[in-house]
């Protein structure tokens, strides 16, 4: 397969996943904001959303203080923000168009109709009332795309590169969502483990559709280390870092087998996966959750670059 084709497939999947994850991050943001009415903490929560979305640079180039309106606008529709949902969908369409013959009809039509609908969105779709519906729509579209991929694509290298894109992006995002909590300041009157703290953790779980899974796995009230354990080390949790890495290792292996050659990307992915598989949550907390997550995000970036070097250029 042409490297350019694989590259487009990889990024097509990444940006579709990113659109969904930005939607999930915003969802956490909106939930947290609805818990407090304190302007000081409010700004800090929205700041955390911007940081977690990795959009500090583009955001603060335009706005001074984050609030619901400007954060939603920046993350949903700002064309100057390459990670805004609308930008992501445009990039998805552009990549899909470039490799149209490598896509199944279902994939193409899914992408194309999403883009056509996105172009027809009106201002009211971005208002504080309309935006929740919009976020649901984005998640639904991304999941429909995932469905088309899994139900219609031939299991060959094209499929594997799409999957790699999805999981590299998803790993990045789970780490970022979990890191939101680090950036959020609790008001002085609130205690760690207090009611607001509790709701914030709940919001994170909800945003990754894992609240029920939490109760199922731990049968316990919300504990920060359990939440972190679930999203980092639990193999049965499909968005956890260890699951994402497991998938990456699997698809890299498929490619390696098909091409009869393995490289640095395999070594890196295997290494990260092993750390997670044998990781312990108390160790992670001892070293600092934030430090762990930042380290992971960096490793994942290096892995992405290595996949690119090995196959996509």
């Amino acid at each position: 397969m042409l490297s350019r084709t694989a590259d487009s497939l990889f990024w097509l999947a990444r940006y579709m996943e990113r659109a969904e994850n930005v939607a999930r991050l915003l969802d956490v943001g909106l939930r947290m904001a609805s818990l407090s009415s304190n302007p000081e903490t409010d700004a800090s929560e929205w700041h955390s959303t911007i940081v977690s979305a990795g959009c500090e640079k583009t955001f603060y180039a335009k706005h001074e203080t984050p609030n619901a309106t400007n954060v939603v606008s920046h993350l949903v529709r700002d064309p100057d923000n390459p990670s805004s949902i609308i930008s992501c969908l445009a990039t998805v369409r552009q990549n899909a168009r470039a490799v149209r013959t490598a896509l199944t009809t279902d994939m193409w039509e899914g992408v194309n109709s999403t883009w056509i609908e996105a172009r027809q969105l009106k201002d009211e779709n971005f208002s504080s009332e309309g935006v929740r519906t919009l976020l649901e729509w984005v998640k639904e579209r991304s999941q429909r795309f995932g469905g088309a991929v899994s139900h219609t694509m031939l299991r060959s290298d094209a499929y594997w590169f799409v999957r790699l894109g999805t999981f590299v992006e998803r790993a990045d995002n789970t780490a970022r969502i979990l890191d939101v909590k680090y950036h959020v300041l609790l008001p002085r009157s609130e205690n760690i483990g207090g009611i607001l703290d509790y709701y914030q953790w709940t919001a994170i779980l909800r945003s990754v559709s894992a609240l029920r899974a939490y109760h199922w796995v731990y049968r316990d009230r919300l504990q920060p280390w359990h939440v972190a354990d679930l999203l980092i080390l639990r193999a049965e949790m499909p968005r956890s870092l260890v699951s994402c890495m497991g998938e990456i290792v699997t698809y890299l292996d498929r490619i390696g087998d098909a091409y009869g050659k393995r490289g640095e990307a395999h070594r890196l992915a295997g290494g990260i996966h092993a750390q997670l598989r044998y990781g312990k949550i108390d160790r992670i907390f001892q070293g600092g959750l934030h430090e762990f997550l930042t380290g992971f995000i960096d490793q994942n970036i290096v892995l992405g670059a290595e996949i690119r070097r090995q196959y996509l250029t």
Binding site: M1, L2, S3, R4, A6, T101, I255, L312, T313
Partner: peptide, 28 residues
């Protein structure tokens, strides 16, 4: 036509010349 012939549809940057031989950049 590329599809019907079962050949790669390439753009300039997909090709490169090395030692006077033309190559496609592929995932392999």
């Amino acid at each position: 036509l590329a599809d019907e012939m079962g050949i790669e549809l390439v753009e300039g940057p997909d090709l490169m010349v090395d030692d006077l031989v033309v190559y496609m950049r592929t995932t392999r």
